[in-house]
Simulated assay, not measured.
Amino acid sequence: MATRRAFLAGLASGLSAASLPRVSWAEVGSPAFLAAGKLGDDFVLHGLSAAGDSLFEIGLPARGHAAAAHPSQALAVAFARRPGTFALVLDCLTGVTRHRLTPPEGRQFNGHGAFSMDGSLLMTSEVVAEGSAGRIGLWETAAFTRIAEWDSHGIGPHDIRRLADGRIVVANGGIETDPGDRTKLNVDVMRPNLSLLSPEGALLDQVELEDALHQNSIRHLALLGDGVAFAMQWEGDPFEPVAQLGLWVPGAAPVLCPPPDDQAYAMKGYAGSIAVSSASDLIALTSAPAGVVMLFNGAGQWLATDQRADVSGAAAVGDDLRLTDGQGGVWGYGHAGLMPLSRNATLWDNHLIALA
């Protein structure tokens, strides 16, 4: 199995000559976000300004989920809704699909990915189709060739985030799914975890939730200081109140952040997206099934619950938060509540991806 060190050496010796033209994000209007959605019968990916205005729109072959933005070049990787078998490398200036990534036989993309700090490597969350064992696929970005894979050290990895020092946090959701219809196969025995990997893929740390919460699937991540805030989806008794927000600093135990008792069921046990303001003082947690978004402070203390039908995407821009909904709305969010910014004909899907 090739290592990232070996890859970088090979890249320096010649692969860089195959690099794509280095068009910057400024040349496509300096978008703040990427967002997938549905426009009529078509599926698309948009680049959005901080105010929610569309700066570019690129067609997708099927429903998208999340995306990954190259740190400097105007390249976006759009991931299929899981279980997916395509990820498109899109030139955001021309709208051209530069590459269509396909996982190896017996693998499926799982909706998310992240670039390395220098943009030379793309990491994709994947599962072995039979059994849902987790993998992180590695793709060099000179020609977007697959060079290796890492063990995600769990079942059903979903979101992955790169910390400032290059380490990787993986949200292993713990759910084994049927590779065809997404039927959940192991809910009674599922064991989600958070895994911390070195920049070379070695397992550095791993935490699970307490036994009573083993059905709280860890799905999505947002950077928070030296660690992450994480969003969960409860697969257990729907009448049991369970927190959907947690905080984790590697080296310590995870901390769950329940809302007050009168808000315990407001999210219907489902958190779809999570975002943390750049000042790390506000956390937004969305639930499309419940039509609510919750606001917490950076310590995980509940501040407010606000209602918005089909609210799902969440991201930060500067010290502010932005939300998207399935009716085409883009919203500002914070202590003042929901503030309408724009409405698009595109009906936004699950996630809003910040470029910064």
Results as ranks from 00 to 15, higher is better:
121 L>M: 15
141 T>N: 14
136 I>G: 02
146 R>Q: 15
136 I>M: 11
131 G>S: 11
127 V>S: 00
132 S>F: 12
145 T>F: 05
153 H>F: 15
149 E>L: 10
122 L>M: 11
145 T>M: 05
126 E>F: 08
127 V>H: 10
130 E>L: 14
133 A>V: 09
146 R>M: 14
136 I>P: 10
140 E>F: 00
144 F>M: 07
144 F>T: 07
125 S>W: 03
154 G>A: 00
140 E>S: 08
146 R>L: 13
151 D>L: 03
150 W>D: 07
132 S>T: 03
122 L>W: 10
145 T>Q: 09
121 L>E: 01
146 R>T: 04
144 F>A: 09
149 E>T: 03
129 A>W: 00
123 M>W: 01
121 L>N: 03
125 S>V: 09
154 G>N: 05
153 H>Q: 09
139 W>L: 06
130 E>H: 09
130 E>I: 08
145 T>A: 14
153 H>W: 12
138 L>C: 13
133 A>C: 02
139 W>Y: 15
137 G>I: 01
123 M>V: 02
123 M>I: 13
153 H>D: 11
148 A>Q: 00
127 V>L: 08
146 R>G: 13
143 A>C: 12
130 E>K: 14
129 A>Y: 04
134 G>H: 10
126 E>I: 01
133 A>F: 01
151 D>K: 05
137 G>F: 03
144 F>D: 12
128 V>I: 15
147 I>E: 05
124 T>R: 03
125 S>T: 13
123 M>N: 05
141 T>Q: 13
131 G>Y: 04
141 T>K: 11
128 V>R: 12
150 W>K: 06
153 H>T: 00
147 I>V: 15
135 R>T: 06
152 S>I: 08
139 W>S: 13
131 G>K: 02
147 I>A: 05
151 D>H: 11
138 L>H: 07
141 T>M: 10
152 S>K: 03
151 D>C: 10
143 A>G: 14
147 I>L: 11
121 L>Y: 06
145 T>V: 11
151 D>M: 07
131 G>T: 10
128 V>M: 11
137 G>L: 04
139 W>R: 02
147 I>G: 01
123 M>C: 14
139 W>N: 08
136 I>K: 00
127 V>Y: 10
139 W>V: 14
131 G>M: 13
137 G>D: 07
150 W>S: 08
146 R>K: 15
124 T>M: 15
127 V>G: 05
125 S>Y: 09
125 S>E: 10
143 A>D: 12
144 F>S: 09
147 I>C: 05
137 G>E: 04
139 W>K: 06
126 E>V: 08
138 L>F: 08
143 A>S: 15
145 T>E: 11
146 R>I: 06
133 A>N: 01
126 E>R: 04
145 T>P: 10
142 A>N: 12
140 E>C: 05
121 L>H: 03
128 V>Y: 02
132 S>P: 00
148 A>P: 00
135 R>H: 11
145 T>R: 06
139 W>H: 15
149 E>V: 07
154 G>I: 07
